[in-house]
Amino acid sequence: MNIYLSTLVRELKISIRNPSGLINPLLFFIVTISLFPLSISPEAKILSEIAPGIIWVAAMLSVLLSLNTIFHYDFDNGILEQLSISHHSTALVILIKSFSHWILTGLPIVLLSPLMGLFLFLDENSIQVLMLTLLIGTPSLSLIGTIGASLIVGIRSAGMLLALLILPLYIPILIFASSAISQSQAGFEITGQILWLIVILLFSLMLSPFISAAALKINLD
């Protein structure tokens, strides 16, 4: 089988056989959002105003929680060494790993988001915008997160360091996405924010696999 397809199948198999890694970030996403109505106010007006920020922050943090798993096991068991010295492109294999991370973390968040939107009294139009921003934004979170994961791969318990490295890079996505939802709630045009999210996605697609491959090479030396 082709290396890229077999990497995708391998990643999905390992994750499905270890469902805790798959379920924990999703549970975190649901639990965090469901605590806000209890702690702030159950009123629809207040909740629908803060909903975009809440859902996006929860999505960002749950992706962050799962980043450690992208390379950690393969670094420990030596698969990354085999990948690094193989004649295949490390960057492309990393791109596949980011994609499978998105399928396992980002995509379930996108699919769960309408339910979370309803929970926080978002109207139908805003829920559609929320899903659109998550659909374009979460792949960037996985791609940028891969850079962080490859930088800290050799360090034990580096969760905080990973957050410090990655969160500043997530901020533009957070700002554009939550602003798109708020603007659409107020009835304004959101093309600008969506285009910016696409630009960030394209940049992440082009750069992150190569940066991650270089970082892994340094860590394997």
Partner: peptide, 19 residues
Amino acid sequence: PSISVDLTVIENLEYLRSL
């Protein structure tokens, strides 16, 4: 070991082959 404990023997070997 270059193998994943969550995969079967044949799955691990097939992946090593593709690399």
